[in-house]
Nucleic acid binder design. Structure first.
Lengths: 354, 354
DNA sequence: ATTATAAATGTGTGCGCACACATTTATAAT
DNA sequence: ATTATAAATGTGTGCGCACACATTTATAAT
């Protein structure tokens, strides 16, 4: 049962070389003849060598610095949650000499992203976890990181073409479908179903379009002959939003509204409440304080949880595992689309990071 | 930022003794004079010594044996999933010299539990993860383990009075409430709502009663004047179940059915399909193959996921962390009550252990 | 053939601890 | 006072690796 441990020493013996040579091969430090390289690689493969992580970290006095680049958490609850996740990861990895340094940019200012990203680069971290909100501004930095061989993990927003070590997030298309499903829920095959984009920052429009695609797809796929209303209320005055909503309420048989941004749903909820339209189903995103309040009071019916906390937590873990153990994370880790209701809310709030 | 590391050697120097003495104090091996003991304890406290866990595990050549005691997974899909979780945990902890030995008992045979539990005890494991399905039979074994100082973690079924190191599972009362909520979903405040217990083994009736309590509580709490039907179809012939169900279908405005056991819902689904009653909402438990099939085809509307895989996985992790690092797990870890629908199913199936 | 130089290979030490074992000191028995 | 014995204290080694550094071997320049 107990498999014998194979040490570097054993590998060396099997391959007929010294431990120094094996070490050079393992760490790709070069200065190894082709012949020796082949021998070592072969036995390494044959024997399925797994380094002892414990010994490795003890033997190396190396410390790792991971930078995390996200919107400023002090101004945004969603990003505050991801900040908490990173903190949790830090306490877990501190024992292996990992240090996490946070860099925050202004969610609404592309230039701030540029300068802060530059600061990250100048800091020479061993790995980077970043939420690349600004596509254009982000691109050149990944070139820099790649050049220097610094691994980077993306979360929240994906940019596949920069080939990150891993992307952590959700499938937004399917997220839109789930949103539509929750509005529909088999109860009525007629009426109007609305999707509202309320976006303070213009930069994640790609996000919202994906959700929109999924939203439409749901009704199409299920051959539901309903009326679909898509309203983009980005960068509008509150009064203007209210007017639009009042217009929407005049729709024949308005069944429900999905709000695609986490911050938007509570405002819509307040309007529904104000106009005594609580029988319209409302679905939003994420466990923000206000959202939770409206979920509890029944104005919001469902929340879809994106779990920003766990996204950041896992991002750090993936980087740490990669740096320490050369363990490759999955190319993309798409989180389950968690459905939160009044009744299961508590079980989510009380359950740490799941 | 980077705090200086204090080694045993430093403690010894500060206290004016040898490292051997410090070691004896740290591990309470005795053979230390009162005077030396005090000196060491004082400096230990002053300096807030934290042992380097990496070095500790490397220095000790100890191997750990964890026993897992569950129903036989080859006969039951639910338990098979928890078995997979344990396996996953094993590969993760193998590098720290952990060995997991599985002991399976017959889910329907109390005596088999007794004899297998005895086998676990005789095996002298360093820690035990157990699903204590049989309350009466389980009690004496926990006395034994406690006597020997062997830590045990419970999952699936809790027995608080044996004071386990940790319990991992779900809040079944709230689970019942979620079930009721999903049947109801604000759509109708009249009609009949049914809860079906279809239990092949009589031993988890406590489970089912908890869910039943939650089920009733939901309607009471929300002051819904509906008719509630509770049917216990445990240990019945299939034809007898069918008859009962046909009777239920005659109820005025039957809105939906919650089946409290993971295996029961697919049978009810087949009956609803057979009798062309697919407009009745059906909610069940867990991502069993059959359940997934009926969820996809729309006969089952919601599944509540208990995540047996992750339960076992975490159970092992808690034990390993405790044994290796003396890290205390939470007393109870109640998983979120995950709601699975047709649309978010895929995101759950594809997302490893979350 | 001889030397300088680069390439390849091998050796030794320390990371912080656990634990076996050696050594010293106190205590009891004669 | 001397010895036996127990109690207390101290020392040395290894866990598996990383990494600096020493040594050997191949290659090029004269």
């Amino acid at each position: 049962m107990e498999k014998k441990k194979i040490r570097i020493k054993d590998i060396a013996q099997l391959a007929g070389v010294s431990v120094g040579t094996v070490d050079r091969v393992l760490h790709k430090r070069g200065k190894v003849s082709d012949e020796a390289l082949q021998k070592v690689l072969t036995t390494l493969h044959e024997i399925e060598y797994k380094p002892n992580l414990i010994a490795r970290t003890l033997g190396s006095k190396k410390t790792y610095h991971i930078a995390i680049l996200t919107p400023d958490p002090s101004l945004d609850e969603y990003w505050h949650q991801s900040f908490l996740g990173a903190g949790q990861a830090e306490t877990e990895w501190a024992q292996y000499d990992f240090y996490i340094k946070s860099f925050f940019f202004d969610l609404y200012d592309r230039n701030s992203f540029k300068s802060v990203a530059q600061a990250v680069y100048d800091d020479c971290p061993d790995g980077v976890l970043v939420a690349p909100i600004f596509y254009q501004e982000a691109l050149p930095f990944f070139d820099l990181f790649k050049e220097d061989g610094i691994p980077y993990v993306l979360f929240n927003t994906n940019i596949p073409e920069v080939q990150p070590l891993s992307f952590i997030g959700q499938n937004l298309f399917e997220s839109g479908k789930v949103g539509a499903e929750l509005l529909h829920l088999r109860q009525s095959s007629t009426g109007t179903f609305a999707l509202l984009h309320i976006n303070e920052d213009s930069n994640n429009s790609v996000h919202l379009l994906e959700k929109e695609r999924g939203f439409k797809e749901y009704f199409k796929e299920n051959k539901l002959n309903v009326k679909i209303k898509i309203l983009d209320l980005s960068n509008r005055e509150e009064s203007s939003i209210e007017n639009e909503l009042l217009g929407l309420l005049l729709e024949p048989q308005l069944q429900g509204i999905l709000v695609s941004t986490s911050k938007g749903s509570s405002y819509i909820a307040s309007l529904l409440e104000k106009h005594k339209k609580q029988d319209i189903r409302l679905v939003g995103y994420d466990l923000l304080e206000e959202n939770i309040r409206y979920l509890k009071s029944g104005v919001i019916d469902f929340l879809i949880n994106q779990n920003p906390k766990r996204q950041a937590f896992l991002g750090i873990s993936y980087l740490a595992n990669y740096l320490l153990l050369k363990k490759e994370p999955p190319l993309t880790d798409l989180f389950p689309l968690e459905i939160i209701t009044r009744q299961n809310l508590k079980s989510y709030l009380e359950s740490g990071i799941h």
